[in-house]
Amino acid sequence: MMFRNIISLVLLIISVILNFKHGWDTFNYKKNSGSDNIMNELGITEPMIPFLGIFTIIIGILLMMPKTYFIGNLLNASSILLIMALALQAGNYKIALIEIPFLALPLIMIGLKYPFRN
């Protein structure tokens, strides 16, 4: 039981950090030409970018609270699935394949449940 909680906590920390990092990077996409190219290739328009950044940060916040842990993971998995679908639509199979472990992360976290919850 304790081992499961430790694994769950480690995955939670990784997921929250990734969400905050990706949210922050989304707001600063123009500083990174690679991000700009990927957004254009996936068909993500410039007006959608702030919403995507805010959404990603909100997911990170939802993951930290026990009552919103499940919905945060569900939204996280959905957003990753959306990115994979957009990549496949654009014909970029590399991005879709790279996202598979990131899709597995919230699904595993749902199964492990929130760490140290009574």
Rank of each mutant, 00 (worst) to 15 (best):
F3D: 02
F3Y: 13
R4C: 10
I6W: 03
I7A: 08
S8W: 00
L9F: 03
V10H: 08
V10R: 07
L11M: 08
I13L: 14
I14V: 15
I14K: 05
I14D: 04
V16L: 14
L18V: 11
L18I: 13
N19K: 13
F20H: 15
T26I: 09
F27V: 14
F27A: 08
N28A: 13
N28D: 09
Y29I: 11
Y29E: 04
K30Y: 12
K30S: 08
N32D: 12
N32G: 07
N32R: 07
S33N: 15
S33K: 15
S35V: 14
D36A: 15
M39I: 13
E41C: 10
E41D: 09
L42C: 07
L42F: 10
G43R: 12
G43W: 12
T45D: 12
E46G: 05
E46I: 15
E46H: 11
P47C: 10
M48T: 10
P50N: 05
P50F: 04
F51L: 12
F51T: 09
I54T: 14
I54P: 06
F55V: 13
T56F: 11
T56I: 14
I57E: 05
I58A: 06
I59R: 05
I59G: 04
I61V: 13
L62Y: 00
L62H: 01
L63M: 08
L63I: 05
M65V: 12
M65G: 01
P66A: 01
K67F: 07
T68W: 00
Y69S: 01
Y69D: 00
F70K: 02
I71N: 00
I71A: 01
G72I: 03
G72A: 07
G72L: 05
N76D: 09
N76S: 10
A77P: 02
A77G: 11
A77K: 06
S78F: 15
S78E: 04
S79L: 11
I80P: 00
L81R: 10
L81G: 11
L81P: 07
I83F: 11
M84Q: 01
L86S: 04
L88S: 09
Q89S: 11
Q89V: 13
A90L: 06
A96K: 02
P101Q: 03
P101T: 08
F102N: 03
L103G: 04
P106T: 10
P106M: 09
L107W: 06
I108F: 05
I108E: 02
M109G: 01
M109K: 02
I110G: 02
I110E: 00
L112Y: 01
P115S: 05
F116S: 01
